[in-house]
Computed example of a mutant assay.
Amino acid sequence: MNETENQNTDARITALENEVKRLTMLVDRIYSYTHLGIHKPSLDNPEVLSGANPIDVDAKLQELIRNRDIISAAKQYVQITGVGLLEAKAAVKNMI
């Protein structure tokens, strides 16, 4: 690469880094609206980080659904997805 290409690449990388920072701030702002029932999902679950659908691969949630334990399953669903409890309960009922 010549010097001009390096400068262009550096400028694009800097622009992308700035955009990621801006988007991260926006997402954090959305999660700060707790009165809307929006909760940040747990990143402790490795499936969330891998891009797999955490609802499909969470063994604990699937077991609770098989046992028809709606309340515990809804709480687990909230932990996985970060949605509000009412939305989680409705989703669990749909899965059962």
Rank of each mutant, 00 (worst) to 15 (best):
T34Q: 07
M95T: 07
A73H: 08
I80A: 06
D69Y: 04
A73R: 05
M1A: 14
E5G: 05
L36G: 00
I71G: 14
K21C: 03
N2H: 10
G51A: 08
I80Q: 05
R22T: 00
Y33E: 12
N2R: 08
L61I: 06
I96Q: 13
M25Q: 07
D69T: 02
R68P: 01
D69K: 11
R22D: 00
V48T: 14
Q7E: 10
A11H: 01
N18A: 03
M1Q: 08
D28C: 03
L36Q: 03
Q76M: 15
T81H: 02
G82A: 06
I71T: 15
L85M: 15
V57R: 11
Q76L: 05
T9S: 06
Q7G: 00
T14A: 13
I65H: 01
E17W: 00
L64I: 03
I30D: 12
V27N: 04
I65V: 15
E5A: 11
T9L: 15
E17A: 03
A11F: 04
A11E: 12
L36R: 07
R12M: 09
D58K: 02
V27E: 11
L61K: 02
I71N: 15
L23Q: 01
I30E: 11
I71P: 07
L23C: 00
E3M: 10
D10L: 13
I55N: 04
